[in-house]
Design a protein around this nucleic acid. Structure first.
Length: 656
DNA sequence: GTCTCGCATGGGA
DNA sequence: ATCCCATGCGAGA
């Protein structure tokens, strides 16, 4: 071992009077830290001290403590929550205890039967969220996440087929087979691989140790895609990994937490929360995008090509081949790739990093062999394209057809150890949004309607996936249709028309955005609503369209007077506003014309941090209470009345 | 007319 | 602005 260097990149000290042990390294052992850095780490203040200016800070969904996500130094201090967002270990442990006590089902997903459509709504929600009894731990998470629960619409909830979604969870949707790629350039890739922790055999071995006990060799289970033991409601991904959708997710910002807005548009009863739950329930199924093994090229591979093989799949592959598998990259097959032309466009960076170097456009043949002994030959070549190259694998049609792959499925490239062979595998999409867009190919073998959307186990929101099980597994019914309809497909799904499509995932994204937007809607100023009653719910009806406004919190003083609080976008301090004020989406202290003494960010908050915490917590508690009472009909559109109830209880006691 | 090959195009990252 | 890449498309077989 050479000279010790403090592994705090901003320190780098080589001498210290006492070396301290830091975070566990992916490669084994622990980080070496000098005394100062190690002390900060011991005191759980490492990221607070050294990473303040780095990105990745979020707040615990329960206690709002700041957490540095995606940083190995803080890895042990946080956990990703089942319903999105993050929690500090203290809070998540508490919630896990509750979960285990109150709910035998991991993740709170019950398995009770759903008999009728009407049962679906309630039973599914109860099973997933509340369990048979109230699960406060879950509720803590939920309350932190479902900030806009009032803004969900019944019609939105109806967009999900709950029954199908539940069923979806029970199915093993992904198949993963493997094809060996015979290569004569292994030394190149092998010699260049290994400098990243994910490529190291010991890490692979570690992953292998995490065998999924529930998965059979022939049916790799992806249900708990990250190898999370049953009963554990949260997980921590391998360090350095990128959790898909974590950042894309709609987990609430610090600002969102504890805030409510006054609803305007008709909103559903408590059942409406199922929308948020539906969207959040994909979390336990996340695939981890692993930074691939370092290739020859210097180009950074785009994360979209990072292998997202799950630990279980990795274990499965490794077990099948009695080898370690090092994922390199993967690609979702386009219509062109899967078309009968038989050309698979390779990501340039990937081709240059992991495939043999070629100088001639004709390229080189690559022999391929799969675990069943079938051998394929691909021509790895490139086309001049502008001043660059476009790499393709030619002659992939037989292989793709034999694997029954279609556009939307994923082809993966890995390396197999020992031996260093390159490996091609695949992962079938459980849904095929391309197909659903194409009437020619959307006729399902079982006649199921493609509009029956559901959530696949790999976390994708998609459409009816029955085809992937019945249409594809049946080779007889597949081969012919693929061969005969391929041209139609490639013709019909032009990339121009494809751009017009809203993929199901995009639709979800859009809907979430819309829900968020709803929470920002405010009544049009200077317009008085007329009250209409529909099915015992009172609605405010406005002649003018709503306007966007900033989220605020409404409180009620012990005296009965109402107040409104808003947070400065710059300094994040909360300022008191008159109750009737409507703020624009962006608002700063300098805009606080109602309180000249607090119109700059430098002025302290009027509320103590303790009171503020209480207020925010009260809002969350109130939301939790609302969830508990979700079976009770609630008048939805009594502006701010509920907020006042929520905050008044706390403010009445703690804030004077 | 159909298929294959190779390059061109252009939207999007 | 540059590059990537999905797909179009024309020439030739």
């Amino acid at each position: 071992m050479g000279i010790k260097v403090c592994m705090n990149s901003s320190c780098g000290a080589t001498t210290t009077h006492e070396w301290k042990r830091g975070w566990p390294l992916g490669s084994g052992g622990y980080a070496d830290l000098c005394f100062n850095c190690g002390s900060a780490f011991e005191n759980m203040a490492y990221c607070d001290t050294f990473h303040l200016n780095e990105s990745g800070w979020r707040e615990c969904s329960m206690c709002s403590k700041r957490l540095h996500c995606g940083c190995i130094a803080s890895k042990s201090l946080l956990e990703l929550l089942d319903y999105g967002g993050v929690g500090c270990t203290g809070c998540t442990k508490t919630s896990q205890v509750h979960s285990k006590q109150n709910n035998g089902m991991p993740n709170g997903f019950g398995s009770s039967k759903i008999n009728t459509a009407s049962d679906v709504e309630i039973t599914a929600v109860e099973n997933r969220v509340l369990g048979n009894r109230v699960d406060e731990g879950k509720l803590d998470q939920l309350c932190a996440l479902i900030e806009a629960d009032e803004s969900n619409l019944l019609s939105q909830r109806d967009g999900f087929d709950t029954n199908a979604s539940l069923e979806q969870f029970r199915q093993e949707e992904n198949m993963h087979s493997i094809v060996n790629v015979g290569t004569d350039f292994l030394n190149v890739t092998r010699s260049s691989i290994g400098s990243t922790k994910f490529a190291k055999p010991d890490i692979i071995s570690t992953m292998l140790d995490m065998r999924d006990k529930h998965g059979s060799p022939s049916e790799p289970s992806l249900r708990m895609a990250l190898g999370v033991p049953a009963g554990i409601t949260s997980f921590v991904p391998p360090s350095g990994a990128v959790v898909e959708r974590l950042e894309q997710g709609k987990s609430p910002s610090a600002f969102q937490q504890g805030q409510r807005s006054r609803p305007i548009l008709p909103k559903p009863s408590k059942l409406g929360m199922s929308t948020a739950l539906e969207t959040n329930k994909v979390v336990p199924e996340l695939r981890i995008a692993r930074p691939p093994a370092e290739g020859r090229g210097k180009n950074q591979l785009l994360p979209r090509y990072w292998p997202r093989i799950t630990d279980q799949e990795l274990q499965q592959l490794s077990g099948d081949l009695n080898s370690n598998i090092v994922p390199l990259f993967e690609k979702v097959l386009s219509a062109s790739d899967a078309g009968r032309i038989g050309r698979l466009v390779l990501p340039k960076a990937c081709a240059e990093a992991y495939f043999p170097p070629i100088s001639q456009s004709e390229g080189v043949p690559l022999r391929i062999q799969d675990v069943k002994g079938r051998e394929w030959t691909f021509q790895f070549r490139f086309w001049p394209n502008n001043n660059s190259r476009m790499y393709v694998l030619e002659g992939v049609t037989p292989c793709i057809q034999s694997m029954q792959l279609r556009a939307g499925d994923t082809i993966t490239f890995s390396r197999i150890d020992p031996g260093g062979k390159l490996v091609v595998g695949y992962r079938k999409a459980t849904n095929n949004s391309l197909d659903t867009q194409d009437p020619q190919t959307s006729a399902l073998p079982n006649g199921a309607s493609p509009v029956d959307n559901s959530i696949s186990a790999d976390g994708d929101i998609g459409w009816n996936k029955s085809e992937s099980h019945e249409g594809r597994i049946n080779g007889d019914s597949l081969q012919q249709p693929v061969a005969t309809s391929e041209k139609k497909r490639t013709r019909n799904i032009g990339h121009k028309s494809k751009r017009l499509l809203i993929h199901s995932e995009d639709a979800l994204e859009l809907r979430l955005t819309w829900e968020e937007a709803q929470d920002l809607l405010r009544p049009p100023p200077s317009v008085k609503p007329s009250i209409v009653t529909i099915e015992d719910h009172e609605f405010e009806e406005y002649d003018e369209p709503p306007v966007f406004g900033k989220r605020t919190i409404f409180t009620t003083q012990p005296s009965g007077g109402q107040e409104q609080w808003a947070q400065c976008d710059d300094c994040l301090k909360w300022r008191k506003l008159p109750i009737a004020v409507l703020l624009p989406p962006k608002w700063k202290c300098s805009d606080n014309v109602w309180d000249p003494t607090r119109c700059t960010c430098s002025v302290l908050e009027e509320m103590s941090s303790k009171d503020l915490d209480n207020l925010l917590r009260a809002t969350k508690d109130f939301k939790k209470q609302r969830l508990l009472e979700s079976h009770k009909p609630i008048q939805e559109y009594e502006p701010s009345g509920l907020d006042a109830l929520a905050s008044a209880a706390i403010l009445g006691e703690n804030v004077t």
